[in-house]
Amino acid sequence: MRKKVFQLLVDNNSGVLSRISGLFSRRGYNIESITAGVTADARYTRITICTSGDDEVLEQIEKQLAKLEDVRDIKELKPDESVYRELAMVKVKITPQERQTIVATTEIFRGNIIDVSPDCVIIEITGNQSKVDAFLRLLDGHEVLELARTGIAGLTRGAENVTYLP
C-alpha cells in the first residue's frame, strides 16, 4: 500500500464532488482526505485527494478520475516536487496551570492559539500531515475535546508544471 496525492482541476459544477466521491465508493478505492475549493478562475475547482492502494489500484484511480467529464486536469503531487499543507484545529481541555506548557508547545510548532476559555483553548496548526500528527502526539496527556482537520491541500513547486485552462 502506497499513499498518493492527486490534484484535480474540475468544472465548478454542482454535483462534481459527489461524482468524484461516488467513483471512489463504487470502485472500492480509499480516500484518506479530500479537499475542494474554487480556484482563481471561478469556473474551476481544485480538488486534492489523498488516497492509498497498491500500484495497480493507484494507476486505475488516476485513469478513472481522468475519464470523468468534469475533470479537466489531473496530476500527482509527488512529495519531493510539491508542497502540502493541512490545517488542524484542536480544542484542548486545560487547567490554568497547564496553559503555559501548551502555549510553549504551540509556539514550537508555529501554531496559534485562536481561542481561550477558562477551561480550554483552541489551537490552530498548519503544516504537512506528519507535522500535524507530531503535534497531536505531543498533546498526549491533555484531553482533546474536539479536533477538526481539513485534509491536504497542495501545489507543485515551480512555474513549469502549471496547467492553464482556456
Binding site: 465508493s25 463504487r26 470502485r27 472500492g28
Partner: peptide, 14 residues
Amino acid sequence: LLGSDVFQEADITG
C-alpha cells in the same frame, strides 16, 4: 472483483 466492471456488476448501493 468489486469495482472492476466484471459480468453483471452494478454499483447498486450507489
